[in-house]
Design a protein around this nucleic acid. Structure first.
Lengths: 195, 195
DNA sequence: AGGGCAAGCGGACTGTCAGTCCGGTTATGG
DNA sequence: CCATAACCGGACTGACAGTCCGCTTGCCCT
């Protein structure tokens, strides 16, 4: 990272201000009603600055979710059990889905925005790809006879913002987590198929 | 229906022209790049006409999917087995998912547009609600011990446009249908829980 | 047949927004 | 303290959703 001149202090400050403003506005008014003009104004910067840093509207939203998902990503690749690689796949899967449920429940507004922003190509969004690869790998380890790719998508589809909103409204993150894990369990315990 | 003066002939003609134009353009260019100006022009009508008939952009898309889903809806409530009410729930569920897979595969572009158009409140879209009620009922009949509502959402989530596109690209509607039915099977055969 | 009229039509108009561009500003390394 | 490259901001453009209202036309009644 020290390859190139380090990022200017004001640039860092502005990036943070923009992300923070975007998150606040998103939570308050929803994706549809947040224009980048407003984000820029709320962050106290010019519109050009927002576009230069994040490319476009969708880039901003993606950056938002990525930042929020970073900690989880690290816990998964190098953290302790049950998330980390030292636990058995079934346990890791449950732990991961649980963590995801928590993340989703605490950031519904952002998740909704992300769904909209990446709708064009949801399945190739970097964050989605990372999560999917992880889930797919775990399923494959636990049950090599199953179509892990497909079941990976099935499980992640449960974290659709609208669904998360509805489920957590009636029972909080715990309810979401329980339901998701129940489905994962049903998949991992489904009748064996010939390989 | 004869309560009020019947719909004027030109109105009918225009409605059809608009729906047809919208579908064509959607398939050709994708939701993002189809403006209602263009739809109106392609249908050979004025912009005002489009808005009067369908309320707004989303209304048009919703109407499009509803029209396409009508036949399935009727087959389900009053048709013959395996879709209709004379078959046992497990069979009806498989048949319904199969029909849905077919519908989805043959109308991906429209489905994608619908996903976008209803993103604000996907779970309350009339078509979604109808499908969900049906699936939920069937699951509830087959397995009263399960959270049918939740599993209903899980199954319908598989018909997300992006996922449908990817799966059918690599194996057609049959592959999608098989995968979905496999998941349904895993759910219906999951270990009993105390009621 | 044809007159009256509500239903229907269409396109000009408005307000908003994503994204571009470039002249001015400022942090940073020497 | 200077040179400079990175950064900033907001005016500008083009496109689009949705509104509005004067004009047209199919339909019903006599």
């Amino acid at each position: 990272m020290s390859e190139q001149r380090r990022e200017r202090a004001d640039a860092v400050r502005n990036r943070r201000a923009i992300l923070h403003a975007a998150e606040t506005l998103l939570a308050a008014h929803g994706f549809e009603h947040v224009s980048l003009d407003k984000v820029a104004a709320a962050a106290g910067v010019g519109k050009g600055t927002v576009f230069r840093r994040f490319g476009d509207r969708n880039g901003l939203i993606r950056a938002l979710l990525e930042e929020r998902a970073e900690a989880l990503g690290e816990a998964v690749v190098s953290g302790p059990a049950p998330l980390g690689p030292s636990a058995p796949p079934g346990v890791r899967l449950a732990a991961f889905l649980d963590a995801l449920a928590d993340l989703a429940a605490r950031n519904v507004a952002m998740l909704a925005a992300h769904d909209r922003a990446c709708a064009e190509d949801r399945l190739n969004d970097p964050t989605y790809v990372r999560w999917h690869r992880h889930v797919t790998t775990l399923i494959g380890e636990a049950r090599p006879d199953l179509d892990a790719e497909f079941y990976g998508h099935s499980l992640l589809a449960l974290f659709d913002a609208a669904l998360v909103k509805r489920i957590t409204a009636g029972g909080g993150a715990a309810c979401l987590s329980a339901s998701v894990c129940e489905l994962a369990d049903a998949i991992l315990r489904s009748p064996r198929r010939s390989v």
